[in-house]
Design a protein around this nucleic acid. Structure first.
Lengths: 103, 103
DNA sequence: CGCGATGCCTAGAAAGACGAGGCATAATAG
DNA sequence: CTATTATGCCTCGTCTTTCTAGGCATCGCG
């Protein structure tokens, strides 16, 4: 996958509600109609980075099946960051569209 | 800039006609309405990689002002590669749009 | 004459994604 | 009952790509 988009996808997934890491992967896969598959080796380091930056907070909880898991939720800063990354993404998509339209 | 899009931009720029490295930077900047600025330190290594892969070929020529410059032109394989990268880009944009639409 | 633009290049650092592995428990298949 | 798959977490090393910062040469213009 393209480097730089993962943070946005994770933040977006968490914007739909708190979730544990493994669930983030599933949510991204589902909401993208199976088009995006995030590897665990990419996700967990990314979650760590993102938490260090204060965009998410985590706590260990127990899910509905009785398993313990680390649940992440968006912070206010994370919500702001998501907006910025989406805007930045839109700019990039627009810029590349322009180049591709050039004759 | 996002990692992974540079090759496509270079190939696209060259699809409009052969050009030397410095000119590729200008063409990308112009066609993107100044939104994309490729650094020389990114471009020249990228051109080298792309040539190694057989997507472009180069030869030293003299431009209209009498300066020598290395002109790159798309090969058939390069044209094919450009199509693939554009299709792949479209898929990614679609996939991310889906995730962002999710409620 | 000096400086910015044009033109090429490299080396090193930084970042991020990935594959492969390790570990543990629960559910399911055989 | 046992073996495999799914769920859940993590780390390490590698690879790729981009950027910053430099170096070098020539041309045009003020």
């Amino acid at each position: 996958m393209l480097q730089g988009t993962l943070d946005m996808l994770i933040l977006k997934a968490l914007s739909l509600g708190a979730l544990h890491g493994y669930g983030v992967i599933q949510r991204i896969r589902q909401t993208s109609d199976e088009m995006l598959n995030v590897e665990q080796g990419s996700l967990y380091p990314a979650l760590y980075r993102i938490e260090q930056k204060g965009w998410v907070s985590s706590k260990w909880e127990t899910n509905e099946t009785g398993r313990r898991a680390k649940f992440y939720s968006l912070t206010r800063a994370g919500r702001k960051q998501l907006e910025e990354e989406e805007a930045s993404w839109d700019r990039l998509v627009l810029a590349i569209a322009k180049v591709r339209q050039a004759t």
